[in-house]
């Protein structure tokens, strides 16, 4: 469908990222950022075709249990150990509209706080039935759902005694490479959230709150799994109400 056939204005370039809302590259309490943060200013430019397009991931990519971490690595008839939870929500743009067809990939520690990774050094036990990754594609209204176990908190080498709050890592592809985003989901009520140097890289408590999933009692499966709701907002496009691009911009 060409833009001319729509009743709404054509899509313009992507709305610039609010860099004061995102974490800065350098945040001293998170020590790994010291030698990994660029020192020069980013070069700010409008989005062009290469940023306004992105790869297409179809449902044929997905296996039957890709979004069910309880069983996608488990032996037949068995499930991962830990509190069973549903994580559901919607992928939205900056105008609040659902983003269909977004690829969502997640990874997490097991219920004991242990990752399945050869460089992981925490003493907590591996769960032979838990791999720790899942993926899905959002529906027509931007909705998605995963089933998993609630991950445990874990200690990490930063300060002498730093612990990550329980979290799930999210990677999201919208429709354009400019929307590419990796973030983390935290759990309502976790006392470790305000103590974490990685959470603390977020400049405001408002930003932190947008990453804390709410317990969603209404979506709970009785006698089966608690539910948490986590919406993710991707960059949106300007409407080209009156396009006036200057030469060289």
């Amino acid at each position: 469908m060409s833009n001319n056939e729509r009743s709404e204005p054509a899509a313009g370039g992507f709305i610039a990222r609010d860099r004061a809302w995102h974490p800065p590259a350098f945040h001293a309490p998170y020590k790994s950022t010291l030698k990994r943060s660029p020192q020069a200013a980013l070069i700010s430019l409008p989005t062009s075709l290469g940023e306004e397009t992105g790869p297409v991931f179809g449902h044929s990519l997905l296996g039957e249990h890709d979004n069910d971490l309880l069983i996608n690595f488990a032996k037949a008839g068995e499930t991962a150990i830990g509190p069973r939870i549903i994580i559901h929500g919607r992928i939205l743009d900056e105008r609040g509209r659902g983003v269909p067809g977004a690829l969502i990939e997640i990874w997490q520690a097991n219920a004991g706080g242990r990752y399945r990774h050869k460089k992981e050094g925490y003493v907590a036990a591996l769960d032979p039935n838990f791999g720790g990754c899942g993926r899905t594609i959002s529906g027509e209204d931007g909705s998605y759902v995963f089933r998993t176990v609630q991950p445990g908190p874990y200690p990490w080498p930063n300060g002498m005694n730093d612990w990550r709050p329980a979290h799930v890592h999210f990677s999201v592809f919208g429709h354009a490479f400019a929307q590419r985003l990796i973030t983390q989901m935290y759990f309502e009520g976790d006392p470790l959230i305000p103590l974490c140097p990685i959470v603390g890289s977020l400049p405001t408590t408002d930003a932190v709150e947008t990453l804390v999933a709410a317990l969603d009692k209404k979506q709970t499966l009785p006698m089966d799994a608690l539910a948490y709701k986590f919406d993710i907002v991707l960059r949106g496009r300007r409407q080209t109400l009156f396009e006036n691009r200057r030469e060289g911009l």
Binding site: W21, P23, E94, R95, T183, Q184, S201
Partner: peptide, 8 residues
């Protein structure tokens, strides 16, 4: 709506 903030 504000874009979800990034985390490492």
């Amino acid at each position: 709506w504000r874009e979800s903030p990034s985390q490492t």
